[in-house]
């Protein structure tokens, strides 16, 4: 058996956000308080209680306008940097392909994993100094029981397709080859950071949809580990620093709200 993955065909996503709700429902994550956003993306960014998020993009080109919905979550790298960055081995790349935060008991809350992730797909509680981590685990508890991830199971249009990564990659290539005028000739996740389990195809260039396409095409764990490991002071200092920043900015935001 090869590793599993998910193929996201952005051209088939109608933006119903059933996946975003299904994720919270299956993982029993609480609703967070949100406010109006002009794009209707809500919450505006992923957070500790929203480990998948559908981002709405309005793309203007001269007289023409296009609108696309892009589901974001952990891409499940083939060689995950978070796994490499974690000095207590709280992470695991499972044989099924899911990158799982496996061992929360031993996590020190150092935030290396989050710093290391080039896609900002790992979430923490910013108001806790040594916070546990939360990220998409591809619904590993479903996977091992032969079920698709909750998001894929709920998708009405087939924009999300679950399967073995190799087969999905082949299908992605076929879809692009069959409709070369429609798709951008790029499978995001095929090569980025050495490959990810989640693959995306699109009719709008990925840079215009909030994807980081400037990442290297080879595995980066070793690079990052090489630098971070040389500075042990960060392990203690950074969490406290970030938590302090968070509390400061939150208070300031509250004060500003109160002034109106």
């Amino acid at each position: 058996m090869g590793q599993y993955g998910v193929l996201v065909d952005i051209t088939k996503c109608i933006g119903c956000r059933g996946c975003q709700v299904a994720c919270k429902n299956w993982n029993d994550l609480p609703a967070t308080k949100t406010t109006f956003t002009a794009s209707r993306t809500n919450p505006p960014q992923m957070n500790f209680n929203n480990v998948t998020l559908v981002n709405f993009h309005t793309i203007e080109k001269g007289d023409k306008v296009q609108w696309r919905a892009v589901k974001m979550q952990c891409f499940h790298c083939l060689e995950p940097i978070c796994f490499e960055a974690c000095f207590v081995h709280a992470y695991k790349k499972t044989p099924e392909g899911a990158v799982v935060y496996f061992n929360p008991e031993i996590c020190t809350g150092c935030r290396y994993c989050q710093l290391a992730c080039p896609f900002l797909n790992i979430q923490l509680k910013w108001d806790e100094v040594f916070s546990r981590v939360r990220k998409c685990d591809m619904c590993y508890d479903r996977l091992v029981r032969g079920l698709k991830p909750a998001c894929v199971a709920t998708c009405p249009t087939g924009a999300l397709k679950f399967g073995e990564r190799d087969a999905l990659l082949k299908e992605a290539r076929e879809r692009i080859a069959k409709n070369p005028d429609k798709y951008v000739d790029h499978i995001f996740g095929e090569k980025e950071v050495g490959g990810t389990s989640w693959l995306y195809i699109s009719d709008v260039p990925f840079e215009e949809l909030g994807f980081r396409t400037d990442v290297m095409h080879e595995s980066i764990p070793k690079y990052t580990w090489k630098y971070i490991s040389k500075a042990p002071i960060l392990a203690v200092g950074l969490p406290i620093l970030f938590a302090a920043f968070y509390v400061y900015t939150k208070r300031r935001a509250e004060n500003e709200d109160g002034g109106h």
Partner: peptide
């Protein structure tokens, strides 16, 4: 109408997940 709320919102505006997605009138 929006995808997140159903008709007058009698049910969906009492559903925390859907309120999180579409919290405010605009």
């Amino acid at each position: 109408r929006l995808p997140e709320h159903y008709q007058t919102g009698g049910v969906t505006r009492n559903q925390p997940y859907l309120v999180e997605l579409a919290p405010e009138m605009f």
